[in-house]
């Protein structure tokens, strides 16, 4: 409990001093996280502090819509059944609301991440997981063709001069259903 001294000032107890020190340490970690820095060091104490930063969210950065807004990515699938009949324009987005769409959009963005750009196999794995969802929804399909499309809005100046934005295909991959053999 803090007390008032004779002059009317608040005196700070040892416990309060400790709590304030912890709070200041926490805010220091928040500052480091805000500028994309990890707590330095490669020893158990540093590892513990780094884990605390994750647990408390102090490692977060705050660059929303900064410094720019990139392009938007979406996927469209074609499915082909055993008879060769093609169904086009299949989407994974359902009418499940904006919160779900934001999350799915976050997954689509992984296709254009640095890791996916550098590792075609990883990009293919991302596509395969979505193709599996298409196969589940369309049991008749034996093949699914993924079209990854990007939308990059033109500038205001370009728009005034008549340019228009559109979805451009940036990646395509075909996935085949693998039939599970019945166990003997």
């Amino acid at each position: 409990m803090n007390r008032r001294s004779d002059e009317g000032n608040i005196t700070v107890s040892f416990f309060q001093g400790m709590v304030l020190s912890i709070a200041l340490g926490h805010l220091l970690l928040v500052s480091l996280g805000a500028v994309y820095k990890d707590f330095p060091g490669n020893n158990p104490v540093s590892a513990g502090i780094q884990w605390y930063s994750k647990a408390s969210g102090a490692d977060s950065s705050y660059g929303f819509f900064a410094p720019r807004v990139g392009s938007k990515v979406r996927t469209i699938f074609d499915s082909i059944d055993g008879g060769g009949v093609k169904t086009t324009n299949l989407r994974l987005e359902k009418d499940s609301g904006r919160e779900a769409a934001i999350r799915l959009g976050g997954f689509y963005d992984e296709f254009t991440s640095k890791e996916a750009e550098e590792d075609p196999e990883f990009r293919q794995q991302l596509g395969a997981t979505l193709a599996a969802a298409i196969f589940t929804e369309h049991p008749e399909a034996v093949q699914a063709v993924l079209h990854l499309e990007e939308y990059d809005p033109v500038s205001m100046e370009a728009y005034r001069q008549g340019e228009r934005s559109s979805w451009e295909e940036i990646y395509q991959a075909t996935f085949a259903r693998i039939e599970e053999k019945p166990s003997p």
Partner: peptide, 28 residues
């Protein structure tokens, strides 16, 4: 702190100074 860092990071991009950021976001 979070608003300050967010604002400074935004200000480092040209799009926040010429209106392109809102134009792009609203037309995405």
């Amino acid at each position: 702190l979070s608003y300050l860092v967010s604002g400074v990071e935004k200000a480092s991009g040209e799009m926040w100074w010429n209106g392109e950021i809102l134009w792009r976001s609203l037309n995405m």
